[in-house]
Computed example of a mutant assay.
Amino acid sequence: MSTIEFSTQFDRLRRTLFSFALNLTKDEESARDLVQETAFKAFKYRDRYEPQTNLRAWLMTIMRNSFINEYRKRKRRQTLNDNTSNDYLLDSGHQSVSNQGESTVMQEEIIKVVNTLEDWVRIPFLMHFQGFKYEEIADELEVPLGTIKSRIFFARQKLQAQMRRLYTAKQIEDILS
């Protein structure tokens, strides 16, 4: 199929593609961007299109995959889309603890619980908590990587179980935030 034929068929499907893009994005500007991205990829890879197949389905597949890939990128970056005017400051999400003394007591309790763990679980957990990567811990302790991962997992389980016995779910949530 020639470039002119491909372009003509693409133009016939442009409204359908825009409708589909609008359905995916729920925003006209984003829908236009998605149609443009689809057009770019379609023309770039038009040699992969089989002329006897359904062009509309092929283009919509490109569009859907482009949308999904962009969504995943945004999700990984945790980008905040702020559509409000810049007259207000956004809440950073940081929750302050209303009672600093209570927080200090809880932290001391957590430290006590961590110190009750056996060395084979506590040491890898503390190293991971201090920022060491699993591989670094495994190398330092001369233990297989899978063993380190399971020991840290066991430490977390034991800590969660002990903390549940000591505090309510709301109190634990307040500590962790």
Results as ranks from 00 to 15, higher is better:
Gln52Glu: 15
Gln52Ala: 13
Thr53Asp: 07
Thr53Glu: 12
Asn54Val: 10
Trp58Pro: 11
Leu59Ile: 03
Met60Phe: 15
Met60His: 13
Thr61Glu: 14
Met63Thr: 09
Arg64Ile: 11
Asn65Phe: 05
Asn65Thr: 07
Asn65His: 12
Ser66Gln: 11
Phe67Leu: 03
Ile68Trp: 04
Ile68Asp: 04
Asn69Ala: 05
Glu70Gly: 02
Arg72Asn: 09
Lys73Glu: 08
Arg74Leu: 06
Lys75Asp: 15
Lys75Ile: 13
Arg76His: 10
Arg76Trp: 05
Arg77Leu: 10
Arg77Gly: 06
Gln78Glu: 15
Gln78Phe: 08
Gln78Val: 10
Thr79Trp: 08
Leu80Met: 11
Leu80Ala: 10
Asn81His: 09
Asn81Ser: 08
Asn83His: 06
Ser85Pro: 08
Leu90Cys: 06
Asp91Tyr: 07
Asp91Ala: 11
Asp91Ser: 11
Asp91Ile: 06
Ser92Arg: 05
Gly93Pro: 05
His94Trp: 12
Ser96Lys: 14
Ser96Phe: 13
Ser96Thr: 15
Val97Gln: 13
Val97Arg: 11
Asn99Glu: 14
Gln100Asp: 14
Glu102Leu: 10
Val105Thr: 13
Val105Ser: 11
Met106Asp: 06
Met106Arg: 10
Gln107Pro: 03
Gln107Val: 05
Glu108Leu: 09
Glu108Gly: 09
Glu109Asp: 14
Ile110Gly: 00
Ile110Thr: 00
Val113Ala: 06
Val114Glu: 00
Asn115Cys: 00
Asn115Pro: 02
Leu117Ala: 00
Leu117Glu: 01
Leu117Gly: 01
Asp119Thr: 01
Asp119Pro: 02
Trp120Ser: 12
Trp120Ala: 13
Val121Trp: 00
Pro124Thr: 01
Pro124Gly: 02
Phe125Gln: 02
Leu126Phe: 01
His128Cys: 04
Phe129Ala: 09
Gln130Trp: 00
Gln130Asn: 11
Gly131Phe: 02
Lys133Ala: 06
Ile137Lys: 01
Ile137Ala: 01
Ala138Met: 07
Ala138His: 04
Leu141Lys: 04
Glu142Leu: 06
Val143Met: 07
Pro144Ala: 10
Pro144Glu: 09
Gly146Met: 05
Gly146Arg: 04
Thr147Ala: 13
Thr147Asn: 07
Ile148Ala: 04
Ile148Met: 02
Ile148Trp: 01
Lys149Ala: 03
Ser150Val: 11
Arg151Ala: 07
Phe154Val: 11
Arg156Pro: 00
Arg156Ala: 02
Gln157Arg: 03
Gln157Met: 02
Lys158Phe: 04
Leu159Pro: 01
Leu159Ile: 12
Leu159Gly: 02
Gln160Trp: 09
Ala161Gly: 02
Gln162Trp: 01
Gln162Glu: 09
Arg164Lys: 11
Arg164Tyr: 07
Arg164Glu: 13
Arg164Ala: 07
Arg165Pro: 00
Leu166Val: 10
Tyr167Cys: 03
Thr168Met: 08
Thr168Tyr: 07
Ala169Asp: 15
Lys170Trp: 10
Gln171Val: 12
Gln171Phe: 07
